[in-house]
Nucleic acid binder design. Structure first.
Length: 270
DNA sequence: AAAGACACCTGGGAGC
DNA sequence: TGCTCCCAGGTGTCTT
């Protein structure tokens, strides 16, 4: 997925075309997503106005008077605003056709994404577990330090844990740990308070910067107008295993943690 | 309570 | 050209 900056970029891209618009029709071509898309959704949103578009964690929320549509992009999901007459492609699973002749189109080859109505039992279950937003003041050095003291797992797994802080995925966790000079495998409970403060500040920096650049385009992600995100050029270690460290020239290594690759520089990160 | 493995699914690239 | 295998932005669930 799309990590937090990509979701934020999608939100900013679609908001001007969707806020204040009435939904004319909802088309579900393939509802077999992370959770089966509720059959009653079209009935629920048809003729309703999208009052606001917001984000919570990696969920994009379309607000209606009676509740929200919670959209998650999973690993390969994408939202675009297209003309309603544009023919649907192979993985274009859901359309929200709007009164202004535009169409909010959801594309997701791997179908790990989701469209869930909130409030609902499922929505509460998903939302209740979520930790603070990474860019909020609640996520600060003292907080992360307290969370880390309880855990002996690798620091990278802790900052990627949604219960600790939301929105930090593999790319930005990897980058922030490089910037702070700590190996992803370092036991979280061995992080000093000073480093916890520094790490929080770098996570915020890297996420904010990525949002400004329109996110990171690897393969699937594009902004809602179809343009790529430009943060990829800024990546210092993610995906660079085998290449030279841009700071010291050492070969970037990669380890697997929780079935996920973690790239790091063996010299810059201890 | 926490950690680890596994699940969901398709497509792209590497290697043979 | 084609097959097989591994990998990929996430995260809920089940087992130790």
């Amino acid at each position: 997925m799309p990590e937090l900056p990509e979701v934020e970029t999608s939100k900013n891209g679609i908001a001007p075309f969707t806020e204040g618009q009435r939904v004319k029709k909802m088309i579900i071509r393939n509802g077999a997503l992370r959770w089966p898309v509720d059959d009653s959704l079209p009935e629920r949103v048809t003729d309703q106005i999208i009052t606001q578009v917001s984000r919570r964690a990696k969920y994009l929320l379309l607000h209606f008077s009676g509740g929200n549509l919670m959209i998650h992009l999973g690993m390969s999901g994408r939202l675009r605003v297209v003309n309603e007459l544009q023919p649907a492609d192979k993985h274009d699973h859901i359309d929200l056709v709007l009164a202004n002749g535009k169409c909010l189109r959801f594309t997701d080859p791997r179908r790990f994404g989701s469209w869930v109505w909130s409030p609902s039992e499922l929505a509460e279950k998903l939302l209740n577990k979520l930790g603070p937003e990474p860019l909020s003041s609640e996520f600060d050095g003292d907080y992360l330090y307290r969370q880390c003291k309880k855990r002996k797992a690798g620091i990278k797994q802790v900052i990627m844990d949604n219960q600790v802080v939301v929105g930090v995925g593999n790319i930005y966790a990897t980058e922030a740990l490089f910037l702070v000079g700590i190996r992803p495998t370092r036991a979280a409970n061995r992080l000093s308070k000073a480093k916890a403060h520094e790490l929080v500040s770098l996570i915020k920096d890297v996420l904010s910067k990525a949002i400004k650049q329109g996110g990171t385009t690897l393969k699937d992600f594009t902004q809602s107008d179809g343009k790529p995100g430009y943060f990829k050029q800024e990546l210092l270690v993610y995906g660079r295993q085998g290449e030279e460290c841009l700071i010291c020239g050492q070969t970037i290594k990669s380890v697997r943690q929780g079935q996920r690759a973690s790239a790091f520089c063996p010299k810059c990160q201890q």
